[in-house]
């Protein structure tokens, strides 16, 4: 027994070294598992407040850019609103005068369905206070947390397209797993043909991503736009993911090698929108039930 203690004492440095490294590895593995809420991330109170005050300072330097972007976004939204309004008015007029028209009835049906779809998703805007772009696993910290209604697994989009999804939220801050993360996959589709595929970031270049599982019978061309499929209950359908920039296929391959230009420029993200899908639990549970049913 005494010799055991002597042995332990003699190699205490190495043993403590091993012990600390094992703790680190355990932390890394636990942090890598996709869904987790921990104290040691930038959403905790001290780190969040520090990053926020640092961001307040650096804000002044890109106010002009942010203003321009917001103005452009405003203009676009106004235009959209105008278009929708005019459509609505037209429909109202029509319903009062020609209620017998059958095509109109279906039109109104789609309209009410649309409004259901709109209510399904709730939007929440937030400001980016910290981000990384050049690591293998990149995260974004925002200035809204649980008290504003942010929850893990909410989808995050920017002005131009997909940004990521919420990983962990504290009272006033939240950490977002960016699309530039080695575990992140977006269920997407080719807008033109509707074929399903998966977008994934390969790990080196923050402007490009790969498109996986596009079978060779699909006709893909450079310039096709890729949007989210809406099949995984996190992202709504039709959010831009990117644009095809390079298409390759070898003789015997089953799938294309496709590179896309990501729609969002992660270097310049200042504001993001969080999307809450109010029907998410319902969709997930019915899908799981169906899977169970077919598994038998």
């Amino acid at each position: 027994m005494q010799r055991l203690f002597l042995f332990l004492y003699q190699y205490r440095a190495f043993l403590i070294f091993l012990f600390l490294e094992v703790i680190c590895l355990w932390l890394i593995v636990r942090n890598n598992s996709f869904q987790s809420a921990g104290f040691f991330n930038s959403s905790n109170r001290i780190a969040g407040n520090l990053l926020q005050s640092s961001d307040n300072v650096s804000d002044y330097f890109n106010l002009a850019d942010v203003n321009n972007n917001l103005a452009a976004e405003n203009a676009r939204l106004k235009q959209e609103l105008e278009a929708l309004n005019s459509r609505l008015q037209y429909l109202k007029l029509d319903t009062t005068y020609e209620t017998t028209d059958t095509t109109l009835v279906t039109d109104i049906d789609t309209l009410t369905q649309d409004s259901l779809q709109i209510e399904k998703y709730q939007f929440l805007s937030a400001k980016v206070i910290n981000k990384s772009v050049r690591n293998y696993n990149n995260y974004i910290t925002i200035n809204k947390g649980r008290s504003e209604g942010v929850e893990p697994d909410m989808a995050v989009i920017g002005n131009d397209g997909v940004v990521g999804k919420v990983k962990a939220a504290s009272q006033h801050f939240a950490v977002i797993t960016s699309v530039l993360h080695s575990d992140f996959q977006i269920s997407s589709k080719i807008d033109k043909t509707g074929d399903l595929c998966t977008a994934k970031w390969p790990g080196n270049d923050p402007y490009h991503a790969e498109l996986l599982f596009v079978p060779r019978h699909v006709e893909v061309e450079v310039g096709d736009s890729i949007v989210t499929s809406g099949y995984n209950a996190i992202f709504p359908e039709g959010v831009p993911v990117g644009v095809v920039s390079d298409v390759e296929i070898t003789e015997d391959a089953l799938f294309y090698n496709i590179t896309i230009d990501l729609a969002s420029n992660f270097n310049e993200i200042g504001y993001v929108y969080l999307i809450k899908n109010s029907l998410k639990t319902e969709q997930d549970s019915i899908q799981q039930e169906a899977e169970k049913f077919y598994a038998q």
């Binding site: 070294f17 490294e21 590895l25 355990w26 930038s42 910290n130 696993n137």
Partner: peptide, 17 residues
């Protein structure tokens, strides 16, 4: 450092090493 880089454990492991 990890707390701010959101890379729990990585910097710690390298530093201990």
């Amino acid at each position: 450092i990890d707390t701010f880089y959101d890379s729990l454990g990585i910097h710690a492991a390298a530093s201990v090493f």
